[in-house]
Design a protein around this nucleic acid. Structure first.
Length: 477
RNA sequence: CGGGGCGUAGCGCAGUCCGGUCAGCGCACCGCGUUUGGGACGCGGGGGUCGGCGGUUCAAAUCCGCCCGCCCCGACCA
């Protein structure tokens, strides 16, 4: 709770973000550098994210399981690119129970290796495939620079790991899960994302191909909000995941992995929100409706609270909170809940008791514009409709923002200019040197080659050689 | 690790250059009363030994040395 105003979102985006996370009580800094405590309000948001994803995972045939936090050091070393990618950021346990360990244990930065080991043990026949497992857990990556939710030493996520008999099936799984993420981001979080393929240099260490959903944040920077990897037979060969096919021939399995983390909370915050604070999408908001009773005298209190109780009861299907604090004024509560991003506020005061009405204040439209008085009749339907409208308008607004900040530069000079405050969508020859050139000149990196590509071909925005793919360039988190 | 900044009450800060009623301010917190449809007000309270250790001095938040920690900008990253 706080009485201070937030920094302006447009002028001090990063500071706005930090403060809103702290003041809305989503998370707090932990006593260990780079680590955070996810507070109840933030965790409730994460739980809703989990529900939205977990339902989709189950619907597509996946099961949950749990693998160990500790991984023997030599596991990481079995896949060359994997160890090169992750070794700089490993946390390693060298002492246990007061004794120096014979082999150091790595705190998992991701679980391909230990799950690969187990899959090798479990998979003998094509009849054992596919294996479709997901795990909800935490991982540790020793990052240099951290930021609440976006990049912390420890973070929570889910990681799916699947093994298949054929390359085609694994590729299909990879794309299916990318689609699950897109669907979740767009429909539940109202975060417009672009599903696409990562370049070689941006792909996951050990993957054959990495896909991503990229979102544009409120400062126009890009955020990789979820990833899905086709691992080919890389990990199968490193961990001997082999099976006999129906022709009695020994084959290596084809594996995938895909993950979405608490970073996604950052994506929601930075996509929506305004100078007043957060705006949470109704489908994921821990509190969808906050009820603020207003009264002066004891007599008014009695009448108002009786209506409040009735409304609370009628709206029991929504995630509702009654703010009955007496030590703060209604005005304070309005600001407080707006800062926390509750999508819909309902005010009930003496005038409403008289007129059989309540006041709706929708979070996505500030001030008077978002305030309407509605009848107390059929409140459930009215609230449901309003929440849907807010959900839709958040998505539309974010999409419009992304589109107005995405450019098709005509030449390299223009690209250098537009990526200062937006995304560039351009033809790219596929050469890593061109990618590097853009990064050196502008700090912008390639984000993804969208699955949905235009017809035909063009010339590379950097080197003018023929190009088959269009790709997004943007400064990223 | 390179560059910059900073550690004084729960939070945000002033005080440090020019050692000595400087341990203070705002918010938060507690009590009482009046308030309550857009961040209420009055009065009265509780709480810190100034990041740590050592040194200089009659005297250190203030000067000196070492150490620890944090934040911002770079290379890395879900």
């Amino acid at each position: 709770m706080s009485t201070d105003k937030l920094p302006s979102r447009s002028e001090h985006f990063s500071e706005w973000y930090n403060q809103v996370v702290l003041k809305a009580e989503l998370a707090d800094y932990a006593p260990v550098r780079g680590c955070m405590v996810v507070r109840p309000y933030g965790w409730a948001l994460w739980e809703n994210i989990q529900k939205g994803l977990d339902r989709r995972f189950k619907e597509t045939g996946h099961e949950n399981a749990a693998f160990p936090l500790f991984i023997p050091m030599h596991f990481l070393e079995k896949e060359k690119e994997h160890v090169e990618g992750f070794s700089p950021e490993l946390a390693v346990v060298t002492v246990g129970g007061g004794e120096v360990l014979e082999e150091p244990l790595v705190v998992r930065p991701t679980s391909e290796t230990i799950i690969g080991y187990m899959y090798a043990k479990w998979i003998k026949s094509y009849r054992d495939l596919p294996i479709l497992i997901n795990q909800w857990g935490n991982v540790v990556r020793w990052e240099m620079r951290t930021k609440l939710f976006l990049r912390t030493l420890e973070f929570y996520w889910q990681e799916g790991h699947t093994a298949h008999a054929t390359s085609a099936e694994a590729k299909q799984e990879t794309l299916q899960m990318l689609d699950v993420y897109s669907d979740f981001a767009i429909n539940d979080a109202a975060v417009p994302v672009i599903p696409g393929l990562k370049s070689e240099r941006e792909k996951f260490a050990g993957a054959v191909r990495s896909y991503t959903i990229e979102g544009m944040m409120g400062d126009t920077r890009a955020l990789q909000s979820g990833t899905s990897h086709f691992l080919g037979q890389n990990f199968a060969k490193a961990f001997d995941i082999q099976f006999l096919d129906s022709n009695n021939e020994l084959q290596y399995a084809w594996t995938t992995s895909w993950g979405l983390s608490t970073r996604f909370i950052g994506a929601i915050l930075m996509t929506h929100g305004d100078d007043q604070g957060l705006i949470l999408p109704p489908k994921l908001a821990p509190i969808q409706v906050v009820l603020v009773p207003i009264f002066k005298s004891e007599d008014e209190k009695t009448k108002v609270m009786s209506v409040v109780e009735g409304v609370k009861d009628e709206l029991k299907d929504f995630r509702l909170h009654v703010d009955d604090r007496t030590e703060v004024t209604p005005g304070f509560k309005f600001n407080d809940w707006e800062m926390r991003g509750v999508p819909l506020r309902i005010e009930i005061g003496p005038r409403d008791v008289e007129k059989n009405s309540v006041a709706f204040a929708r979070r996505d439209k500030p001030g008077r514009e978002g305030k309407t008085f509605v009848s107390q009749d059929q409140l459930t339907a009215q609230v449901a409709e309003m929440l849907e409208r807010i959900q839709a308008s958040l998505y539309d607004r974010a999409l419009a923002f992304r589109e107005s900040n995405t450019h098709n530069p005509k030449d390299y000079d223009e690209l250098r200019e537009v990526v200062k405050s937006g995304w560039a969508y351009s033809w790219w020859c596929g050469d890593e040197a061109c990618e590097q050139q853009v990064k050196d000149d502008t700090k912008a990196t390639t984000r993804c080659m969208p699955l949905d590509q235009p017809q035909g071909e063009g010339t590379c925005i950097v080197c003018n050689r023929p190009a088959m793919k269009k790709i997004y360039f943007a400064r990223a988190y």
